[in-house]
Computed example of a mutant assay.
Amino acid sequence: MSKSTKVSNPNAKGGSGFIWAVVAVIAIAAVVIGYIVMSGQGKKTEHLADRERVDVAFTSDFSDNAVTLRADNARADAPEVDLYEDFSCSYCGQLAENTDAQMQAAIEAGDLVVNVRTLNFLDRGNVDGHSTRAAAAVLAVAESGETDVYWNYRAALMEEQADIYNKWSNDDFADAAKQLGASDAVVEKIRSGENVEAADALAAVNAEKLNAETGSVSSPRVIQDGKDVNSPDINQWLDVVLG
């Protein structure tokens, strides 16, 4: 009489142990991937901690859809201008680099008042576009009254525009603000993205104002008394305004 041979399932015994081993491997992989993602995210902005900070001697008041930069000793007859800029505009970035130092000096001397008016027309209606999210981040700082942070943050976003355009998430904008000294409340407001719709609405109002006064919307623009500052080179607008 022949003996039957029973073939057993190799996974029949210890099957639960095998499943738990797979789960553990997946969990470890998730942790590693998360660590890599978080580390990479931090590296996008960690260099800003070494950026030279500029201290300013003027105040920033966020109202009427603009950030007004004015010194406490501003002359009663100091000229006042509206500076229109878009965080996706390379010419705006160049203008900021070329004229911010001179503008700061004039404001601090009490010789100039500037209303910085943010636009987002280069997003072409995309509320998640770079212009709008950058504006939301900067305006969150402006609303807090953290003037030094505002001035340095705005400058950093303008100067590094080519490297960060359409590459930063709300987390990146928040991390950058933190590196530049923004308060925890402001950082978390930026991270949440709660200010994006408000920034989009603000930019739309500014575009309407610019169009009503000049008949067109573009950037950068410097408007005084409802008209473009008459300068053949916009990089020399301060010389014209200050006379």
Rank of each mutant, 00 (worst) to 15 (best):
M1C: 13
S4M: 12
S4A: 13
A12D: 12
I33G: 11
I36E: 08
S39I: 08
Q41C: 05
E46T: 11
E52A: 14
V54F: 03
D61Q: 01
D61H: 00
S63Q: 08
S63W: 00
T68N: 02
L69A: 00
L69P: 02
D77P: 01
S88Q: 11
G93C: 10
L95N: 03
E97Q: 14
E97L: 11
A101G: 07
M103P: 02
Q104F: 09
A109E: 08
N115P: 01
V116G: 00
F121L: 06
L122C: 07
D123S: 00
D123A: 04
R124L: 05
R124W: 01
D128N: 09
G129N: 02
H130Q: 08
H130N: 10
S131A: 14
A135C: 06
R154K: 08
M158Q: 13
E159K: 15
A162P: 03
A162W: 12
D163R: 14
K167M: 11
W168C: 13
F173P: 12
A174F: 06
A177T: 09
G181P: 10
K189A: 13
E194S: 11
E194V: 11
E197V: 03
A199I: 05
A203I: 07
A204K: 07
E208S: 13
G215C: 07
S216R: 11
P220V: 00
R221W: 05
I223Q: 04
K227G: 05
V229D: 04
N230C: 02
I234M: 06
V241E: 10
G243D: 09
